[in-house]
């Protein structure tokens, strides 16, 4: 059998699947490795510390319960992110029904975000400018619709490929591109307003 042929691809897929199953077997390690990523995605999407932590824990609880159903067709990271996306949708749906609880969460403040800027700024002016830009993006992201925000966060915070995003959230690739285009248009518009 030639390397790189259909047989090799099949073997690679089987190997990946086995690796994913093996990885899932040590669930403590799974939580340790993937919890920061899931928490980051939920925190970026919901901007609510309590909800993000609660849903992160629920995500791993669901993953543990459904670990026997995981077939390794996608990576463990994609599978966990898909569970997190579904949980977030349910959470947002129930929150819209329980509108009086909207203000009860511990929301991330824009100051939390913009106060942190990577080192290496040459001058106070550039530091201030960087903070303003982060704050502008943060505020613009909060304005996005749920789909736009999910796609934006998965692409620009989690750095996932577009087809991986499509698989994770169960959308067509063209729909994912459309949401991303609109999200970026809004952010660009807000950035233009602040100049």
């Amino acid at each position: 059998m030639l390397a790189g042929g259909p047989g090799a691809g099949n073997e690679l897929a089987i190997e990946k699947r086995e690796q994913a199953m093996l990885e899932l077997a040590d669930f403590d390690e799974v939580v340790r490795v993937y919890r920061p990523r899931i928490l980051r995605f939920l925190l970026s999407s919901l901007t609510d510390r309590d909800a993000a932590e609660s849903l992160t824990q629920e995500c791993f609880l669901k993953a543990w319960s459904a670990r026997h159903q995981f077939r390794g067709d996608s990576s463990l990271s994609t599978w966990l992110t898909r569970i997190a996306v579904n949980l977030m949708r349910d959470h947002l749906r129930s929150r819209s029904l329980r509108f009086w609880q909207k203000t009860r969460g511990v929301a991330l403040d824009v100051m939390d975000i913009s106060d942190w800027v990577p080192d290496g700024r040459s001058s106070p002016e550039s530091l201030t400018l960087a903070r303003e830009r982060v704050a502008t993006v943060w505020k613009a992201v909060k304005e996005l619709s749920t789909h736009q925000r999910t796609v934006f966060v998965l692409r620009f915070v989690e750095e996932m490929e577009l087809d991986e995003i499509a698989t994770t959230i169960g959308m067509n690739l063209s729909t994912v591109k459309s949401h991303l285009y609109r999200a970026l248009a809004i952010i660009r518009e807000r950035m233009g307003e602040t100049k």
């Binding site: 928490l39 980051r40 925190l43 824990q57 942190w116 830009r133 943060w138 915070v157 952010i187």
Partner: peptide, 26 residues
């Protein structure tokens, strides 16, 4: 815009790391 998005990503990673370091408050 690319720089702003990069800064935003770095900030979110930093915040998430800080939050992840805290014990579960569930």
């Amino acid at each position: 815009m690319a720089e702003a998005l990069s800064l935003y990503r770095s900030a979110m990673h930093h915040i998430a790391e800080r939050e992840a370091a805290r014990p579960f408050a569930v």
